[in-house]
C-alpha cells in the first residue's frame, strides 16, 4: 500500500472578513516531493501556510497531515516551519547560532528537560549539515543574511522533521546566497527524502529542483506542468509561464 500523502488539502476555502481569499483549493504533497507554491502578492500564499499549520481555520474543506485530519493532528515535531523573515527576528537577539539551533530540539525534549551531551552533538551536526559548524559560538546577529537563514534551516533540521514548510526563504538574501540555499534544500530532499513545501516568488532559481509547482491565482489553485514551466522559463523569462495564470510571471533574474 502506498504511503499516505504527507499533506493533502481538499476543497479548502478561506474568507477574511467575509472576503473570500481562495475557494475550494485542493492539492497534495507526496513523501519526498519538493513542491513550490507560487503566486502574486496578496493571493493568499502565506494564508495557505497558516491554514496548513492550524494557525487559521478554513471556512470549509479539510486538510490532512500525514494521513490524519489536521484538527486531530498532534505530532507537530514532524513538521518544520520557517516563517518569512525568521532570520530578521534573530538579528537583534543576543544568542549564538548553537543556542538558536538548540531550540529546534524542544519538541523532542518537552518541559523541564535539558539537552544533554547528545543534544549538543545533534546541534553541531545540524550546523555541520548547513556548513556552519565553525560559526556555532557566534552571535546570530553577527552572521550574514545567508548564514542566518542557514542557521534557521539547521534549527529545523535538528528536530528531524519529515516535512519542511518554508515561506519565502530567499527574502532579504542576495542571488548567489539564494542559489546555494536552494541547492542545500535540494541535497536534503535527495539525500534524506525530506519533503519540502516552499512558498516562493523565486521559481526561476528553484525550478531545477522541483517536482511540482502550484500556482495560486484569483482564489484558485492550479498545478503547472513542469515541462511547460521549463519551456517558458527557458525563453529568457520574457513570457508568463502560463497564459491562463497571471501570477506566474517569472522573477527577474539578473
Amino acid at each position: 500500500m502506498a504511503a499516505p500523502d504527507v499533506l493533502r488539502a481538499e476543497n479548502v476555502s478561506f474568507s477574511y472578513h467575509r472576503e473570500p481569499v481562495f475557494t475550494r483549493v485542493s492539492f497534495s504533497v507526496a513523501p519526498g516531493d519538493f513542491t513550490a507554491v507560487i503566486g502574486a502578492n496578496g493571493t493568499g500564499k502565506s494564508t495557505l501556510i497558516k491554514l496548513l499549520l492550524g494557525q487559521l481555520s478554513p471556512t470549509s474543506g479539510q486538510i490532512w497531515l500525514f494521513g490524519q485530519e489536521q484538527r486531530a493532528f498532534g505530532d507537530w515535531s514532524r513538521i518544520g516551519y520557517l516563517a518569512q523573515n525568521q532570520a530578521a527576528t534573530a538579528q537583534s537577539f543576543p544568542a549564538t547560532a548553537a543556542e538558536i539551533v538548540q531550540t529546534g530540539l524542544y519538541p523532542s525534549l518537552g518541559l523541564f528537560r535539558f539537552p544533554g551531551r547528545q543534544g549538543r552533538q545533534k546541534v553541531l551536526e545540524a550546523l555541520d549539515r548547513v556548513g556552519l559548524r565553525p560559526m556555532a559560538g557566534r552571535l546570530v546577529g553577527q552572521l550574514s543574511g545567508g548564514q542566518q537563514q542557514r542557521v534557521m534551516l539547521a534549527r529545523l533540521l535538528v528536530g528531524q522533521p519529515r516535512l519542511m514548510i518554508l515561506d519565502e526563504p530567499s527574502t532579504g538574501i542576495d542571488e548567489q546566497t539564494a542559489r546555494s540555499l536552494y541547492a542545500l534544500l535540494a541535497d536534503l530532499n535527495r539525500d534524506t527524502g525530506l519533503t519540502i513545501l516552499m512558498v516562493t516568488h523565486d521559481v526561476a532559481r528553484v525550478e531545477p529542483y522541483l517536482n511540482h509547482v502550484f500556482c495560486l491565482e484569483s482564489g484558485s489553485m492550479i498545478e503547472l506542468a513542469r515541462a511547460q514551466l521549463l519551456e517558458e522559463l527557458g525563453h529568457r523569462h520574457k513570457h508568463p509561464v502560463n497564459p491562463e495564470c497571471a501570477c506566474c510571471e517569472p522573477a527577474e533574474v539578473s
Binding site: S77, Y81, A90, F93, T103, G104, Y106, P107, L109
Partner: peptide
C-alpha cells in the same frame, strides 16, 4: 526550570507555539 521555554518565547512566540511550548 523554564529556561528554554522562556528563551524560545522571548525569541519567537509563534515558533514556540508551533514547537509545542505551552
Amino acid at each position: 526550570l523554564l529556561y528554554k521555554e522562556l528563551f524560545l518565547i522571548a525569541y519567537d512566540e509563534e515558533a514556540a507555539r508551533l514547537a509545542g511550548v505551552p
